[in-house]
Amino acid sequence: MERDDAHLLDRRRLTAKRDRAEALGEAGRPREARRVLVGLLAAFERGLGPDHPESLLTRGLLARWTGEAGEPRAAAAEFRDLVRLRGRMLGMSHPVTLEARHALAHWTAESGCGATALGMLEELLAVRLRVLGADHPGTLATEHELARHIGGAGEPATAARLLGDVCAARTRLLGGDHPHTLDSRQELARCTGAAGDPGRRGPAGGAARAAARGAGRPASGHSPGLPRTGRLGARGGAGRGGPDTAAGAAAAARGGAGGRAPPRPGDRRAPRPHVPRGTARGGLRTRPVRGAVRTGAREPLRPQR
Rank of each mutant, 00 (worst) to 15 (best):
A141H: 08
P179E: 07
H149G: 00
R172P: 04
A117G: 14
E143S: 13
E143D: 11
R172F: 02
R161M: 03
G138C: 01
R128C: 12
P137R: 01
T139D: 05
T142L: 08
R128Y: 07
D183P: 00
A168H: 14
G176T: 11
L118D: 05
L162Y: 00
C167N: 07
R130K: 13
V131S: 09
L129K: 04
G176A: 13
A169T: 11
G119W: 04
A134P: 12
A159E: 04
A134W: 13
E145L: 11
H144G: 01
E122W: 04
D183W: 07
G151I: 08
G119C: 05
E145T: 12
G164M: 05
G164R: 07
R148A: 12
R185S: 12
T139R: 11
E122M: 07
R172H: 11
A168G: 06
G175Q: 12
V127E: 11
R148S: 13
R185L: 15
M120H: 12
L129I: 10
E122N: 03
L124M: 11
A169K: 10
M120Y: 07
R128G: 01
D177N: 08
L182I: 14
D183G: 15
V127P: 00
V166Y: 03
G119A: 09
C167E: 04
V166P: 01
A169R: 15
G119T: 08
H178K: 09
A134D: 08
L118H: 00
T139W: 06
H149M: 10
T139L: 07
H144E: 09
L162H: 06
T139E: 02
L163V: 06
D177P: 00
D165P: 01
V131T: 14
R148I: 08
A159L: 07
L125V: 10
P179Y: 11
L124Q: 09
A153S: 15
L182S: 06
H144I: 00
G133E: 06
E155M: 15
T142V: 14
L174E: 09
G164H: 01
A159T: 08
T158A: 15
L162D: 01
C167R: 12
L118S: 07
A160D: 11
A117Y: 08
T139Q: 02
D135I: 08
R172M: 05
R172T: 04
G175C: 10
V127T: 14
E123I: 01
E145F: 12
G164E: 02
G154N: 06
E155S: 13
H136E: 08
S184V: 09
V166L: 03
A157T: 09
H178L: 07
G175A: 13
T139A: 10
L162P: 00
L146N: 02
L129F: 01
S184G: 12
R172D: 14
V166N: 02
E145I: 01
L124V: 10
L140P: 00
G152I: 00
R130W: 14
G119S: 03
L118Q: 05
R161C: 02
A147V: 13
E143G: 03
H178I: 03
G151N: 12
H136A: 13
G151F: 10
A153L: 05
T142S: 14
T139S: 06
G152D: 15
I150S: 02
E123P: 00
H180P: 00
A141T: 05
R161N: 05
D183N: 14
L125P: 02
P179K: 09
H149W: 15
G138S: 03
T142C: 12
